[in-house]
Write a protein that binds this DNA or RNA. Structure first.
Lengths: 179, 179
DNA sequence: TGGGACATGTAAGAAGTTACATGATTAT
DNA sequence: ATAATCATGTAACTTCTTACATGTCCCA
C-alpha cells in the first residue's frame, strides 16, 4: 500500500531523484537549495529521514558504498514513479501567505506610525533584494539546470510576488507620509 | 526569563488577548478564523496548548469558571505586553511562497501540456474565488472589527497577491495555447 | 600537515495535522 | 424532546527547528 501519508517533502525527494537519477541526500540538498528551495524549503532534519522513510515504503531503492564514506545512494522505484505521477494529477490546495512582516503589521496599532514606517522600510529593502536576485537568475547566464525549464516558470511567479509586495509596502509607507 | 522560544502562534494569542481583553481559547479561534487566519493559520491543536504554555511563562494569567463549563479565561500580563512590544520591534523575516500548485508545476515535465493546462485552470479558478472573497470583505458592510484597520491593510496584500497569481497562471495557460 | 570548508549524520523539543470525544445550546 | 450544531477539549502521530557532532577533502 503506497500509503496516503506522503507530504510535499516526499514528492520533492521523488521528483528530484526521478529527474537526476541515483543520488545522495546531500545531492538533494544542493539541488534544492538553489531551485525549488526558493519557494518551498526542505528542512535539514528531513534530508536523511525522508529518503529512509520512502525506502521502507518501497518508493526508493538504496545502496550503500562499501568503502570510504559509506554514502547512501537512492533511486526511484517503479512504485515511486507511480506515486509521483498520481500526485501530479491530484488537486492542489491553496497557498497561505504566512508573511511574518504582515503578521507584525496586523498586531501593530494603527497610530504607531514610527513602528509601521520602520517595518515597511525594512520589508521594502528585503523584497527589493529578493527581486534583484530573481532577475539575475532570469536574465543571467543559462541557469544550472537547462533541462529544467519549469524553474524559469516558478521564478516568474517569484518575480510577480515580489512586485506585489513592493507595491503593498510602498502603499503602506505612502499612507503614512502626511503624518 | 521570558524565553526566546516564542513562535508566531504565541504572538497571535498575545496580540488577540491584548486587543480583546480576557477571553477563552474558543474566542481566539473565532476571531482568528475570519481575520488573521486568512494569511496565517492557527492550528486547532495549539488552541488550548499555546495559552497554557504562555501561562507557565508568566505572559498570560488564567482564571477558570467554577460553575457550568469551567471555561478558562485568559488575559495578558504586563510581562506579556512587554514581550509583544519587543516582538513588534524585532526584525521580520521573509515569507516563503509555499504554493502547492507551483510545486506540482515544478515537477511536471514541460511537454505534458495536458497536465499543465489542468493545473493552471484549477489554480485560476481557486484564486478567482479567493479574490472575490477578499473584495467582498473590502467593499461590503463595515467589517466586524471596525477598531481593527490593519486588517483592511492585510486584505489589500491578499488582493495584490491573488492578482499576481491570476496573472501567473494565465501566462502559463497562454504559453500552452499554440500546442 | 594543518586549518578551513564541505559533507554527512543524530537528537531533543516545538509546532502542526488529524481524528476523536463529549457537554451545551438552539431550532423545530 | 430530540436532532443538529456549537463549543470545548484530548491524544497520537508527523514534521520542522535548532543545535550538535564528526568525518573527509582541498590547498597553501
Amino acid at each position: 500500500m503506497p500509503d496516503a501519508t506522503l507530504g510535499p517533502s516526499a514528492f520533492i525527494v521523488l521528483g528530484f531523484l526521478n529527474h537526476a537519477g541515483p543520488a545522495t541526500a546531500y545531492d538533494l540538498k544542493r539541488w534544492v537549495d538553489d531551485s525549488v528551495g526558493f519557494f518551498w524549503s526542505f528542512p535539514r532534519s528531513q534530508l536523511y529521514a525522508e529518503p529512509q522513510r520512502l525506502v521502507t515504503l518501497g518508493l526508493l531503492a538504496e545502496t550503500q558504498e562499501e568503502s570510504g564514506r559509506r554514502r547512501r545512494l537512492y533511486s526511484v522505484t517503479d512504485a515511486g514513479r507511480a506515486a509521483l505521477a498520481d500526485w501530479r494529477r491530484s488537486p492542489a490546495g491553496m497557498p497561505e501567505l504566512r508573511d511574518p512582516g504582515l503578521l507584525r503589521m496586523f498586531f501593530t496599532p494603527e497610530e504607531d506610525h514610527a513602528a509601521l514606517r520602520a517595518l515597511a522600510a525594512g520589508q521594502l529593502r528585503q523584497h527589493q533584494e529578493r527581486l534583484a536576485t530573481y532577475r539575475d537568475m532570469l536574465g543571467g547566464e543559462p541557469c544550472p539546470w537547462p533541462e529544467r525549464p519549469p524553474f524559469t516558470r516558478t521564478l516568474r511567479m517569484g518575480e510577480l510576488y515580489e512586485q506585489a509586495c513592493l507595491t503593498f509596502w510602498q502603499e503602506v509607507l505612502d499612507g503614512l507620509r502626511p503624518e
